[in-house]
């Protein structure tokens, strides 16, 4: 415990570094995965190939990727760009399938109605399909976000600063409290990012909130019926 109190500054710094690696990677995952998913959902034949490719990327072990990627990008192994790129790659691989399913799930009747109203293809995508895929996209992005946050510590093996350094350092020096602090802080970061996404979702998709309350109300009514 004393270690934690003595090293609050280190923990805070590592947490901040952790967030700075995870957030850009999460944003990249979303921004890259959505157009790829659009291709997969728009052109049936490309779907299989794209999703297979995404699956293969996700199957690459993380440590080798951290080491191979600099050869492709021309960065150093320890550069933040390298770490963010690797995390982003996994995020994209995971997100593409979620996003493709989310876009596919938008009611074709609604898309037809939008076309009949006189939406052009681009406007229809951004004003109708994307927002209606929103709830499913958000569900996928939450998984990607938590998975990214928990993948960041691997980069500590390369010596990049994040909460992962608390693991490696704590193990090497036999300080249990340091390892524990790393674990707890990682979980806290994951939960905070997840909550942030949920709040962002409510803000951007106001039509969904009442639907959720409707679900709650139905549960309450069901319970009331059971009790009665």
């Amino acid at each position: 415990m004393t270690w934690i109190l003595d090293n609050v500054g280190t923990i805070a710094g590592a947490t901040w570094a952790h967030v700075l690696l995870a957030l850009p990677a999460i944003v990249i995952s979303f921004v890259v995965a959505v157009p790829v998913a659009w291709l997969a959902s728009r052109f049936r034949r490309s779907r299989f190939i794209l999703l297979l490719f995404a699956g293969l990327i996700y199957a690459i072990p993380s440590l080798p990727l951290f080491i191979i990627l600099p050869l492709v990008l021309g960065t150093s192994v320890r550069s933040l760009v390298n770490v963010v790129a690797a995390l982003g790659l996994y995020g994209v691989a995971l997100m593409v399938r979620y996003a493709a399913d989310a876009l596919d799930a938008v009611s074709s009747d609604t898309v037809l109605a939008a076309t009949a109203m006189g939406y052009g293809p681009w406007r229809r995508f951004f004003a109708v399909q994307l927002p209606l895929a929103g709830p499913a996209l958000l569900a996928g992005l939450r998984v990607v976000a938590v998975s990214t946050v928990s993948l960041v510590p691997v980069s500590a093996l390369l010596g990049v600063n994040s909460l992962g350094l608390l693991f490696t350092d704590g193990f090497q020096r036999g300080i249990f409290a340091e390892v524990l602090a790393g674990i707890v802080a990682t979980v806290v970061v994951a939960v905070v990012v997840d909550l942030g996404l949920v709040l962002l979702g409510r803000l951007l998709m106001p039509w969904e909130r009442p639907a959720m309350m409707r679900g709650l109300r139905r549960e309450v009514e069901d319970q009331a019926m059971v009790t009665a």
Binding site: T110, A113, A114, M117, G118, Y119, V128, P131, W207
Partner: peptide, 22 residues
């Protein structure tokens, strides 16, 4: 086609309303 559709009213079964718009 886009201009044409904007000049013609279209009403469909199950109304085809956009679920995310008031």
């Amino acid at each position: 086609p886009v201009e044409l559709r904007r000049s013609i009213g279209y009403v469909m079964q199950n109304s085809g309303l956009l679920p995310h718009r008031t």
